[in-house]
Amino acid sequence: MNLRRTLAVAFLLTAAPVLADNPQFQGADPHATMIGNELWVFPTGGPGGSWAADRFGAFSSRDLKTWQPRGELIRRDQIAWIGADGAPEHFLWAPGVVTRGGKWYLYYSVGPQNPTPSRIGVAVADRPAGPYRDSGQPLITGGQGFEAIDPMVFVDPKSGTPYLYAGGSAGAKLRLWELTPDMVGLAREVSVETPPQFTEGAFMHERNGVYYLSYSHGRFNGPDYSVHYATASSPVGPWRYRGAILTSDRRHKGPGHHSFVQTPGGGWLIVYHRWENPKGPAPFSGERQVAIDRLRYARDGRILPVRMTDRGASPTLRGK
């Protein structure tokens, strides 16, 4: 990531709706979830400015065409421990959200990785739009070849156990923890294998008793960035690698760091970022764009390759 980009935060401070089809709006690393009949997206950055590395916002839509900014969730200067490592600069990216017991939990990456290890924090709110209150200490600190980035929390629908998946990039290592019941502590680490082609951005979902671990592969600003997946009969593996499902095409490059969501109509969507027709060879520069496309399954449960769309071909919340 270009972590030294000029901060721009105006997109979080306006209530003006954003009108869009694919690509939906500027941003990266989108975590999506249905709240009532609205799709909420929690990204790094957002529409209207450069990557805002000092705070998080959220955006919601009832039709995937009109997006309403939901305001500021948490700012860097509200995280008291963020400067304790003595690094000269700190940035926030790759949020993940989950709700449990009437509370909302925001997990996020704090970096860069050098000169000190990256860290993962967690903040708590009474509603999805916040404000979120930081827990008071980092949840995970990287080191010894592990980069503490890209948190994703999955609550197993069978056991009710909350799991935190994290890691990737330079070390390309996946790690997994069981969270404490209050969702802001680690109960234990679970030994888990890193699946083939894993780089970063793990996401877990379950469908018809099958657990799908999906993740990004490749360099974030190159054409090889893509989404792959593996399956298992439990949220901790062992994984069966199933291949790539989202890769670059002629117009769109480097699609990845995604999330999956089931719509009220029973269909599934993949929410991800991509580079729109980038000029010149990699490494690409500029701003990534959030896009949403249909996710389809074969009868045997395999995920079919995703076809990236533009403008009027973009999906809706009601379609299957």
Rank of each mutant, 00 (worst) to 15 (best):
N2R: 05
N2D: 13
R5P: 00
R5Y: 02
L7E: 12
A10Q: 14
F11Y: 05
F11N: 10
L12C: 06
T14N: 08
A16W: 07
P17A: 09
F25D: 08
P30D: 11
P30K: 07
T33Y: 00
T33R: 14
N37E: 13
E38G: 00
E38V: 00
L39Q: 04
V41P: 04
T44V: 06
G45N: 07
P47W: 01
P47A: 01
G48F: 09
G49F: 01
A52W: 07
R55D: 01
R62S: 14
R62P: 10
R62I: 03
E72R: 07
L73K: 05
I74T: 02
R76C: 01
D77T: 01
D77G: 01
I79M: 10
W81L: 02
W81A: 04
I82H: 10
H90Q: 15
H90I: 02
F91D: 14
L92T: 13
A94L: 03
P95S: 11
G96K: 05
G102Y: 09
L106W: 13
Y107W: 08
S109H: 09
Q113W: 09
I120W: 14
I120R: 09
A123L: 09
D126T: 14
D126Q: 15
P131V: 08
P131G: 12
Y132K: 03
D134G: 04
G136K: 11
P138F: 13
G143I: 06
G143Q: 03
G143N: 06
G145Y: 13
G145Q: 13
G145I: 07
A148Q: 11
I149F: 09
D150P: 11
D150G: 11
M152G: 02
V153S: 10
V155R: 14
K158Q: 15
Y163T: 10
L164K: 12
G168C: 11
A170K: 12
G171M: 08
A172I: 02
A172Y: 03
L186Q: 06
A187Y: 11
E189C: 05
V190D: 12
S191Y: 00
S191R: 14
V192Q: 09
T194P: 00
T194G: 03
Q197Y: 08
F198Y: 15
T199L: 01
G201M: 02
A202H: 01
M204T: 10
H205G: 00
E206Q: 15
G209W: 00
Y212E: 08
G218S: 06
G222I: 00
V227S: 04
H228L: 03
A230Q: 05
T231G: 06
S233G: 08
P235K: 11
V236N: 03
P238M: 04
P238T: 05
I245P: 14
T247E: 12
S248E: 04
S248K: 03
S248V: 01
R250P: 00
H252D: 08
K253S: 03
G254E: 10
G254A: 14
Q262D: 04
G265Q: 13
G266L: 03
I270Q: 10
Y272W: 06
H273Q: 05
G280W: 06
G280E: 05
P281M: 03
P281F: 06
R288P: 02
A291H: 08
D300S: 04
A313L: 12
P315A: 14
P315K: 08
T316Q: 03
L317W: 05
R318A: 14
R318G: 15
R318K: 12
G319Y: 04
G319V: 07
